[in-house]
Amino acid sequence: MENLNFEATKYTPEIKLDATSGIISLVGKSYPENTFEFYKPMMEWLENYFEENAQDVTTVNMEIIYFNSSSSKLFFDFFDLLDEAKDDNTIKINWIYDEENESAEEAGEDFVEDFEDLDIELVTK
């Protein structure tokens, strides 16, 4: 399975989907013009990955410093996908944020609350 990388832009984060190491990382800002369009390749890649290519342990590192509300919505969908995959896979999620970034902190808390069965760790920088 091929890895998938997106460079960061002014409006979108850097995305690295590494099937070999099982490390998924999203770093940067997220307020694309069309959020669902932008993240579609990532979501498809993940479905494919968890269906047949997942590593023993999958680590998700998310460091989103700024995001719009449709990105929040997409992240919920993203966690839904992980939530479905968790029974057959070991998934570790790090939600990384600057301690002064209140929005990122609150979003992380929302995810923890909504996905009790997922292993989400809030990591301050």
Binding site: N68, S69, S103, A107
Partner: peptide
Amino acid sequence: RQDKIMSRADK
């Protein structure tokens, strides 16, 4: 969720 997202966004 939608409510949460909205209220967070508003905040």
